[in-house]
């Protein structure tokens, strides 16, 4: 598999580390135990198009949001995480 890193270009799978579903959002500090439990443990096992976190540890160390079809491994989009790169968000 190959992923087009927005910073480094097209690179081979071995440079990347997979984390998992990029959809769950870390709950706010006061969201309560149930919300955090959901966030930590309850994950969808998607057969099809899924948004995933990948880490380009063998390259620029950016965290990426990769849209991948888990059935075909087809990658339709790659975007950097909100805080990837040197610049601060909003700066």
């Amino acid at each position: 598999m190959r992923i087009v890193c927005p910073f480094c270009g097209e690179r081979e799978l071995g440079e990347f580390t997979y984390l998992g579903d990029a959809k769950p959002q870390r709950p706010a500090a006061d969201a309560g135990e149930e919300a955090v439990y959901d966030y930590v443990y309850l994950r969808d096992n998607v057969a099809g198009v899924m948004s995933e976190h990948w880490y380009h540890g063998g390259g620029c160390r950016a965290w990426l949001k990769v849209t991948r079809n888990t059935l075909t491994h087809e990658i339709s989009a790659v975007e950097p995480a909100a805080g990837a790169g040197a610049a601060k968000v909003g700066a």
Partner: peptide, 22 residues
Amino acid sequence: AGLVMQHLEFCRQVLFPELDVQ
């Protein structure tokens, strides 16, 4: 060593992108 770096980058880039830290 490597895993903590990865974890901290995740925190910085994904969880807390609003923080100005490198």
